[in-house]
Design a protein around this nucleic acid. Structure first.
Length: 721
DNA sequence: ATAGGGTTAG
């Protein structure tokens, strides 16, 4: 190619084969030798040299060579600009372009697409529009590649302000007000398109003299990302009319739409299309399909797609792991994470934010700490997604202080980090911390969203702060314009109920502006049980059974309420109903991790190999507890049996077995961490307070609702839960 | 030369 320029040089015959077959240059020193020969043979630098250095990843050498060039030719500028863009050195690419313009050097072919790509990556609207103006003046406006790159740049620029997450605020995309300006494009929705944030993109598209698949794909992807879902799907049809077939790029930009709409059926149609056109082995499509099926709770299909991918890439792994975890298949997620490591695929920040919730839900602090170590070693600790998931994991695994330390280490926590931390305090009890953090969030992070309000209301609820909760509840809509959702109502109703304001709670739920669910009523039913209001309970239960006739939790609660009131006939009747409906009470279970091994206990479970030791320890403890003033509270033993038997029943509760086992299997002073699947029982709560004092241990119990930290005879919940 | 996939808090 350029060898035509060389004949004047005696070295030319030597160089020629290398310049013709640049792939024969494989190492840095070979490239440098060629560079040296070129410098000797030819006063002006060779464009190929820059491409060569860049292809070998030696961008520094390329830049040095370029900086030393006295007056680079247009092809040299072009090579440097293209290479630096391809290597991600966007600012360098732009400054080379600016330098080229300032010397008045003519524009080589195929430079502008790279410059525009760099402008897009830099998210600099002034730069972008300046280049746009220049390219029109210099007559490149009609160039297909340039216009495509221009569209892409405007797409990126209009998403410059959101933080890259999927749920950007959707444009109105219903079918109204169509018609509009259809002269130019002939497309019914063009006018709406032009008025939206993608106006510039659409304008470029409409004015292109010719369009290819990339043009369409860029426009479709832009629409899909801006929430203009209907338009995006409509345009796929239109591109067919224009004689262009959708390809794997087209599909991968519209698949997330079905994931977001949770329309697995439509998603499956696309999957079928992908299979028919042999796109289904494309990793991009594969990852989108995995995510789409996982979002539609059809994670088995996600798994099938993953298994059928011939060459899953790191993102495919991330997708399947996150998909499994999001669908509650925590062990499976962890298993795949281990497989991923075995396949020598390096985890990325997303891998950890995807897998960490599994540890949080499983309450497996040990594994969480291991992953945290991995995060630190991998240099991902500064990633706000990862850090937020760590905050959440530590809080959910019972270590709210470490959670706080991770949180405090974040240079700029986002709303998720704040909310995770506030929720952490809410779960553990220090409501003051939660409230003061919320206040800090308002000043430092700006507008709290609806989830932050769920967290702060939960904190109030768990601490019995009725007035504060009302204040937040009202400020939420008055100051921030957030319409209360079910979760907010539920938190307030729960709070009122637990504070004993049963009638007020009843009225509150009855006048909600959305239809209360069975679960909202259930919290009140629970409160009726605690505050022994059987009459209101019957009323509430009727509401629940009206919505969910087979709601098992409420049958159990109602049965407990009747037993507590000694109404054994009603209990029997309810039990019959439950039996008829085939409902089975969820068995109480507590578990504890000792030396990397999980020990689970059901109530009155004698199967554990250490069962005898455990009961002996409990017997000894009971004696000490009674000397300290412990009186068994048999109120909640809901069986029609003698008092003595009731006392024995209490000792067999699953949490007590787990705690006793923890005490006899760990060195003195070790914190005991127990998890229970149901709420902790009143008597066990009292007993654990005594036990913590007697054995001088901190005992952390996570029940289905919150954490209890027992220490020196006190509990962090202040006996309010 | 230009276009694509995955993540955290209730």
């Amino acid at each position: 190619m350029l060898s035509a320029a060389i004949p004047t040089c005696p070295l030319a015959p030597l160089l020629d084969p290398f310049l013709r077959h640049s792939s024969s240059i494989q190492t840095r020193s070979q490239a440098q030798q060629l560079h040296a020969l070129l410098l000797k043979s030819h006063p002006r630098p060779f464009p190929l040299l820059f491409s060569l250095y860049s292809a070998l990843g030696l961008v520094r050498d390329a830049r040095l060579a370029f900086a030393a060039a006295p007056s680079p030719s247009p092809p040299c500028y072009a090579a440097v600009i293209r290479c630096s863009t391809a290597r991600g050195l966007f600012d360098y690419s732009v400054s080379a372009f600016v330098r080229m313009r300032s010397f008045g050097s003519p524009l080589a072919d195929a430079v502008l697409p790279s410059v525009l790509k760099s402008c897009a990556a830099l998210r600099d609207p002034h730069l972008g529009t300046a280049v746009h103006g220049f390219l029109i003046r210099s007559g490149w406006g009609a160039d297909l590649f340039t216009a495509n790159a221009l569209m892409n740049m405007y797409c990126k620029l209009c998403h410059a302000n959101d933080d890259g997450r999927r749920n950007s605020p959707a444009e109105v995309s219903s079918g109204d007000a169509v018609g509009g300006d259809s002269r130019k494009s002939g497309f019914s929705h063009a006018s709406k398109f032009r008025m939206g944030p993608l106006g510039s993109v659409r304008k470029v598209f409409d004015e292109m003299p010719q369009r290819d698949v990339v043009s369409w794909n860029t426009l479709i992807a832009g629409a899909a990302e801006s929430g203009m879902h209907v338009e995006a799907l409509e345009m796929i049809k239109e591109m067919g009319v224009a004689g262009l077939k959708p390809d794997s790029f087209t599909l991968s930009s519209v698949l997330p739409i079905f994931a977001e709409y949770v329309d697995g059926y439509k998603g499956m149609e696309i999957h079928g299309f992908a299979i028919r056109h042999a796109f289904d082995t494309d990793v991009f499509i594969g990852s989108s399909l995995i995510d789409m099926y996982a979002n539609c709770t059809n994670v088995d299909y996600s798994r099938r797609v993953f298994v059928l991918l011939p060459n899953p890439d790191p993102i495919s792994w991330n997708s399947i792991i996150a998909g499994l975890v999001q669908n509650g298949m925590f062990d499976e997620g962890l298993k795949l994470f281990r497989e991923m490591l075995l396949c020598r695929i390096k985890p990325m920040p997303v891998t950890f934010s995807g897998i960490m919730p599994a540890c949080a839900h499983l309450t497996t602090l040990r594994l969480g700490i291991q992953l945290h170590g991995y995060v630190v070693r991998g240099g991902f600790a500064g990633n706000v997604f990862v850090a937020s998931s760590l905050v959440d994991m530590y809080a959910k695994c019972g270590n709210v202080h470490i959670a706080r330390r991770v949180f405090d280490g974040l240079p700029s926590p986002d709303s998720v980090s704040w909310t995770a931390m506030i929720m952490g305090y809410a779960l553990h009890g220090p409501a003051k911390e939660a409230l003061s953090l919320f206040q800090r969030m308002e000043t430092e992070n700006g507008k709290p969203n609806h989830v932050a309000f769920v967290a702060v209301l939960t904190a109030c609820s768990h601490a019995g702060l009725v007035d504060e909760a009302w204040d937040y509840f009202h400020r939420m809509s008055n100051d921030y314009g957030i319409i209360p959702r079910l979760e907010h109502y539920a938190a307030v109703a729960d709070l009122l109920g637990r504070a004993g304001k049963l009638e007020e709670a009843y009225d509150f739920i009855s006048t909600m502006h959305i239809k209360p669910t069975a679960s909202v009523w259930s919290t009140l039913l629970g409160a009726c049980r605690v505050h022994k209001n059987a009459k209101l309970a019957e009323n509430v239960a009727a509401k629940i059974f009206d919505i969910e006739p087979n709601n098992m939790g409420s049958h159990v609660l109602m049965s407990n309420i009747y037993s507590a009131a000694g109404r054994w006939n009603e209990v029997a009747k309810l039990r019959m109903t439950m039996k008829d409906k085939g409902m089975k009470k969820q068995a109480a279970c507590s578990w504890i991790e000792i030396k990397n091994e999980l020990h689970a206990f059901f109530a009155h479970d004698t199967s554990h190999p250490c069962y005898n030791k455990i009961t002996n320890a409990l017997k000894v403890l009971l004696g000490q507890m009674e000397r300290e003033g412990y009186v068994p509270n048999t109120e909640d033993v809901l069986h029609d049996i003698e008092e003595e038997q009731k006392r024995n029943m209490l000792c067999g509760h699953s949490e007590r077995l787990a705690i006793a086992f923890g005490i006899i299997s760990t060195p003195p002073g070790t914190t005991i961490r127990v998890t229970k699947n149901l709420r902790v029982c009143v008597d066990c709560h009292t007993a654990t307070k005594f036990i913590s004092k007697i054995v001088g241990r901190e005992i952390v119990v996570r029940d289905s609702n919150r954490f209890h930290h027992f220490k020196d005879g006190e509990c962090s919940c202040g006996d309010y839960w």
